[in-house]
Design a binder for these strands. Sequence first.
DNA 1: ATGAAAGCGCTAACAT
DNA 2: ATGTTAGCGCTTTCAT
Lengths: 337, 337
Amino acid sequence: MRSRMTQPGRKRPTMRDVAREAGVALRTVSRVVNDDPTVGGELAARVRTAIAALEYEPDEHARQLRRGTSGLIGAAMRNFVDAHPVLSAVDATARDNRMTVLAMSTEDEEEREREAVMSMCRRRVDGIIIEPIGTNHQYLAAEMASGLPVVAVDRPCGGIAADTVISDNAAGIGMAFRHLVLHGHRRIAYLGDAERIFTGRERAAAFRACMAANGEPIEGLVHPGQIDTARVAASLAAVRAARATALITGNAQATVEVLRQLGPDAGSLALIGFDDFPLADLLRPGLTVIAQDSATIGRTAIGMLLARMADPDRPVQTVTVPVELIVRGSGELPPPG
Amino acid sequence: MRSRMTQPGRKRPTMRDVAREAGVALRTVSRVVNDDPTVGGELAARVRTAIAALEYEPDEHARQLRRGTSGLIGAAMRNFVDAHPVLSAVDATARDNRMTVLAMSTEDEEEREREAVMSMCRRRVDGIIIEPIGTNHQYLAAEMASGLPVVAVDRPCGGIAADTVISDNAAGIGMAFRHLVLHGHRRIAYLGDAERIFTGRERAAAFRACMAANGEPIEGLVHPGQIDTARVAASLAAVRAARATALITGNAQATVEVLRQLGPDAGSLALIGFDDFPLADLLRPGLTVIAQDSATIGRTAIGMLLARMADPDRPVQTVTVPVELIVRGSGELPPPG
DNA sequence: ATGAAAGCGCTAACAT
DNA sequence: ATGTTAGCGCTTTCAT
């Protein structure tokens, strides 16, 4: 058995090379690589020695081509920073199941989502977790018909029946609303995403329902729409004009923009933000939030994916994950006076 | 030309199916898929119609197997949140070059790094960007000898000669130090990572150099070591005991831990943190930082990777990227009295 | 328990 | 300009 040293420009060894080095058939090497127990002890050892000597690494592409399965899970998320807690949980479970996560960022653009998903399909991922943009995901229908499991996270896909994991948006808004009422507020405003976006719609609707249910409903304080400096400034002005004493923001982006515009006046308005984020506890006052349970969302999503791989005919489900109110100060400010 | 509708359980169409549907040879379909200009207009149209009708997507694994190149760039980063700005830049450039980034998190563990890198190698990535853990990366030697381009980011690899992109740590510490001196501080402390970590070592050394160069050297105020609650508490106590009026923190983790422990006393000590992070501007006082230029780091890293792919024999380089002082308030607090 | 041969879906080399 | 053939590196029948 000649041992070959690492040397510049050398070709990558194949299974064939290992077989030759060990003096066995190709099939035997394949068996050893795949931990097939039917291979004899002595031969197995010889093969393993050859693998180590040549520093052989099996080619996953060849393997996938033959097996028809890639061991890859695609994750098309809107952006990596916000998706990180979810992706962490997905990755952990994937690793436990000897799968690799191929994560791509869609940057909130429908076209990028489509590109990302299609490139995943060309890589023959075994399943896709998607945080959907837009409302039409028909383009996935063909892949799903071919057996691709798809799980939607945070919002549902449009036009196709896919498993879905979402947070309990209505409960979150309800908790925030009641918390503020409990702390004496009677004029409460909401500032969130445009209602064409699923979460924006759900949260705004939940807020309206809270107002209607709250004996003395308060009109004119729901401000859904695109989150940008100008619109938030206008909304804040309206909030002041209506003499609202508390504000619920519909997502982290809105919360941050509001904090930035309030500046040193941050303490003048009770504030509860939907979505927790790092350092929210270091602000003064600390930011009270409705936190999504990202770890559970991620675990549930990949769990549903694995379940559908195991049984493609199981019924399509939507799972709602509870949210949590985290008290840090900004939501407990009393109304002035 | 019979058109096939999407139907449950149907097999995924291959290039062969497209060829049959279009009534052409396999090779012609391959040519069309790869935009080979030598294919006739009428045939090309027929092929494209067949592709659309069958909803055919080429198999990247088969393609890679044949071509010997995967179009994949591996990125093994310590964690996704901190690496996000770098990864964004890498991804953008990769997309421009029709490549896909396969990002994996190493969670600061040497073993996970090795696993991640090896799984990338099995997927035959065309190059690897790595934020190295530990000091021994010999295990990459064989792959590099086989022609795998490797670029280290943030710190150098150990035991192998790889292209490297790092921030100008010494300049950053120098800027922070001089900024504090300029604002009247004479007793300045440093609290950072353990010196067995490259950046911890570089930054602590730079701080010592600053002290030595600053006429009136101050001893006992360099506190490198692991960042945890107990050690930071002890360091802060020592800082107070030494009557230091200003503190430089060596990374974001240290900065956040210090802020958390200072709590409402945050304004009692001038503070400059190495590494910027989101919401640093919303703290009170705003946090003055030394910001790394992540976009440039990412672009440089993948640029070096592409350059080495094009010319494997180019000399190995280390590029140092400038850092920037961002003034927000905490670093401009005067010494008390 | 081990081996020989076929073939996964594609592209490169070589006809025509 | 288009088609035929071979083979990338592996796993899977099917022998032995």
